[in-house]
Amino acid sequence: MEFPEELKYTEEHEWVMVEEDLAVVGITDFAQDALGDVVFVELPEVGTVVEAGKAFGVVESVKAVSDIYAPVSGTIEEINDDLVDAPEIINTSPYEDGWMIKIRMADAADVDDLMDVEAYQALIAEES
């Protein structure tokens, strides 16, 4: 399983890539593997205000459903429309083509609360 070093992580298994005041968000390799084949993704509309720690969408496999939580607070700037017709991208490319949303951050300091790759890997080791 792969966990890029340049990313930040959450306890709910989302990853975040920070590009100035934009946060790109997806779910980790661990999360996609635990879910199995992803069959459906529900994402918010552009312009929606999201709050750190609150659910912004849903990801489903055949027999499981999971909320996806916003790692940071802000406004949805862009969503990945490709996932609607091809949710399997989340399985095949969780960190690149499988990105879900871009959040224009309300407070860039939110990022400081996220885990780095070592902390996240320790969390996974504990969970599995």
């Binding site: 084949d37 069959v39 459906f40 489903e60 496999s61 055949v62 949710p87 399997e88």
Partner: peptide, 11 residues
């Protein structure tokens, strides 16, 4: 029938 492709059925 043998095992069925439930993933495609849902996608």
């Amino acid at each position: 029938v043998r095992r069925l492709d439930e993933t495609t059925a849902a996608r």
